[in-house]
Design a protein around this nucleic acid. Structure first.
Lengths: 210, 210
DNA sequence: CGAAAATCTTGACACCGTCAAGATTGTGAC
DNA sequence: GTCACAATCTTGACGGTGTCAAGATTTTCG
């Protein structure tokens, strides 16, 4: 509009172009921030657009709908989780048990520090995950990480012999279940008074390992 | 309004009173039905009201807001889950291992048959659970059921000696984690090709028991 | 340079949760 | 019984939401 161009001319505003440049990533970033500040129910396309400094329907140039933006945010979350897990695991490449424990710690920390991103990734907010190839890819890549650690533990006789993928689902399920119940406030205070989530998970995984 | 009373007079409509009689429960029931047919994202107060045959803001006579209705639906879900678990467990009162396995089966079946009710109960849709006493009560009552089964298993040396509530969080977490991952489509097909959820859980719990 | 494609804005639509005002009905005191 | 009051329900409005259509602006590329 003429007015905004005029004010842009006489008092040069800090880089306000018609084209954003990298709006797609800016929207994802804005989404993550809103998620952290207002939670899942506070996440709206219009707020994301506003925070990125564009009009309410600008996002439709980059995402066909809200679900698609949520998929992108979830994918970004998985990328971060994968990177952190990968880093934690490769720090103990000669000690499978430590890989398992530190991997679990990393998972817990990620869930605690990015609660609502974690929820978006795992709580059915994303309705048709299979429609988003990059989401499927990074999530199955993450699962393969778990399988590798499990196999290393089996080779070291720390976990019992069994199909590695099946055992991986057990281990991940155990970890994920406790974390999820905790985030939902379903772990009773009689337990939380004595142990934090970290300790509960350590106990549970300790039961599985030898 | 005069018109409707008139039509009620000349052609007797099937019991359309101004006062519903039991609207509160009708709304909960309608909510469960919509949940089953349209999923969590399809659940709106206005649809619930319409399905119950009342105006869009009639629910506010019984629930202060949408969260409160969701709490009621979740509570109802927990009541049903508790009843089914209780029934399954009391059917094998002399066999703790069977109690554990059948309880798990019941949990899985409930999640599969009432997927979206299960999600509402456990996926952060209900934002401040502690504000709803009857929800807190039935959910902690359910946890106590798990504790009882765990204790019975410990007495029979089926589960190792450890604080029963801690062990209960492990067992429930293991079960809940696998079910949740499965509902999210996070259990890879390489596993699902060979085993259904039932078998995966059986394997995982088998690892914990002796 | 100019046409086509990409990007962004404006405006509209139906739906949503919520509230205020008022209509209708049930209830209990007298 | 009746009459005031409480409970219940309707109507109408408000701002916020996701989404789409039309058009403005900018970039890209033949």
């Amino acid at each position: 509009m003429t007015v905004s161009r005029f004010s842009l001319t006489i008092s040069p505003m800090p880089s306000k172009k018609y084209h954003h440049g990298d709006l797609k990533n800016a929207l994802i970033k804005a989404g993550v921030e809103i998620l952290a500040k207002e939670g899942v129910s506070g996440l709206s396309l219009r707020k994301v657009a506003q925070r990125a400094g564009v009009s309410h329907s600008a996002p439709y140039a980059h995402f066909p709908d809200k679900q698609s933006l949520i998929a992108a945010i979830s994918t970004e979350g998985f990328n971060q989780l994968y990177a952190e897990l990968e880093s934690a695991i490769s720090s103990h490449s000669k000690n499978p048990k430590k890989q398992l424990i530190e991997g679990a710690k990393t998972y817990i920390r990620f869930a605690e520090e990015n609660t609502d991103t974690f929820k978006i990734m795992f709580s059915g907010v994303l309705e048709k995950e299979k429609d988003y190839p990059s989401f499927v890819e990074i999530s199955s890549k993450t699962f393969k990480l778990v399988v590798e650690v499990v196999q290393a533990c089996q080779s070291a006789a720390i976990l019992p012999a069994a199909p590695a993928d099946l055992m991986a689902v057990s281990v991940w399920g155990q970890l994920h279940g406790i974390v999820s119940l905790a985030l939902e406030g379903q772990v009773p205070h009689t337990v939380l008074d004595r142990h934090n989530i970290q300790e509960i998970v350590s106990f549970a995984i300790g039961q599985m390992t030898t």
